[in-house]
Design a protein around this nucleic acid. Structure first.
Lengths: 240, 240
DNA sequence: ATGCTTAATGTGATATTTACGCTAAGAGAA
DNA sequence: TTCTCTTAGCGTAAATATCACATTAAGCAT
């Protein structure tokens, strides 16, 4: 195993949508190196980077090692570098134990976020999915990191094609509608919502309809990433 | 002098507006510790942080030490952590010389930007103000850092009250107009521009007009930060 | 007074937003 | 079959915002 850089870490805020509400991926701090901690606190998946590791790579690696998740996009969104962020003392003690060859004084963490759809395959044994409303007290400044991630997500999703990360390949307008309402915590008139989507050429209707519902089946669409980039070069986005 | 953290640095992209065009603050790399370099490359003001220093504090300190500038807002906007960013070798050699007690392998830098009005008092002996169009080759990945800063600035200035950082306390609509045209590199119809500003209650007209111009003097306004936050809580911004 | 320059308001055509009403299509119950 | 329930999906009218352009106003210089 390569040497760790004792000053820099990555943390991942993985937000999952189970077609109802937004949840965040947490893990138990026990899970690092099997060292048993004093409490039962939860934390974001994250860890120190290796000495010569690219930051993005480190985030992907860490996420995979701690949760088994891979092939999801991760976006760097902020840095947390307050010299006192590794508090309370109890949390710092735990960190020192789990990395006992290194002298840990202060760690600057690069935070990443991602959005995924919550399916059975995401619910690996190590993962705990917690609704973002009413989170428990997490280790270090992880509550604050999640808060910031949500702020940024809510801004970005209005003008960037993030919602398609949360939807199946084939989706209905209704599903898009639900995604926006859940994330922005705001309600939209479904008729006007549809009207806004009408002109978006990158929403391609399929020759296929919803099945197995006890009401009028909805048209299925797919997101065409190429068309998106073609039509959205300038102002870089649509606005909801 | 406190010990440096050899893994983490801050860099500041200070953008200055001289009522005509946008310039960026550069310094000569000679200026650190008086070590003379092989070339004459320019760089952004920035340096390694101290072991136990807050990141934001470090950015303010560095900027002051290298340029004499203080009391300007600085905003963290990105992190650059590619393991190869300290290239070419010549640049890395220079860095090692200027910090000769430390083993420098790879440095993650936290980048900050700011916007100020370019006045005589900003033009200290150490500062070089370079138009952002057509920059020379800078040290390390500093060209890339500036590019990213501009991208983010152009996005943010549309919906956040950044332009007031560039304007005097008392300003005219015309001056605001010029700021937006210079930064976004786009022209706006002055009549429609005014119309957009009309409903903004945080632009407070003063009992005072422009003086000493050989044409109709314009109304002076001030920016009321309190009113801004009061009326812009929700969607957090106006859109230009 | 005359002209020069920029300030500031106005107007009408066109597009977008908003708040609704209404019909359509399928499933399941009676 | 027909009725009912549920969500899909289209339409319409009023209010708002956008865009391209014209005109008048206020000061200085001559």
């Amino acid at each position: 195993m390569p040497a760790l850089n004792p000053h820099i870490s990555v943390d991942c805020v993985i937000l999952g949508f189970d077609s109802k509400e937004l949840k965040v991926l947490l893990i138990e701090r026990e899970h690092i190196n099997g060292v048993s901690p004093e409490g039962h606190k939860l934390k974001l998946p994250g860890s120190l980077i290796y000495k010569n590791e690219d930051l993005d790579k480190s985030a992907y690696r860490t996420l995979f090692e701690l949760t088994g998740l891979r092939d999801i996009f991760l976006k760097q969104f902020a840095v947390f570098g307050n010299p006192n962020r590794l508090s309370p003392q109890e949390d710092l003690d735990w960190l020192r134990k789990t990395t006992n060859n290194y002298q840990i004084d202060r760690v600057v963490t690069i935070a990443y976020y991602s959005l995924i759809k919550l399916t059975e395959s995401n619910r690996t044994p190590k993962t705990i999915w917690y609704p973002v409303k009413n989170l428990p007290d997490l280790i270090f400044d992880h509550n604050q990191i999640i808060k910031k991630a949500l702020e940024i997500l809510r801004n970005e999703i209005r003008s960037k094609p993030l919602c398609f990360e949360l939807l199946p390949k084939k989706f209905t307008i209704r599903q898009m509608h639900d995604v926006y309402e859940a994330i922005l915590d705001e309600s939209f008139d479904s008729r006007n919502f549809r009207k806004k989507l009408k002109p978006l050429k990158f929403l391609v209707p399929l020759q296929e309809k919803e099945k197995g519902v006890n009401h009028k089946p909805a048209q299925l669409y797919r997101f065409d990433r190429k068309l998106y980039f073609k039509y959205n070069k300038k102002r870089n986005g649509f606005i909801l």
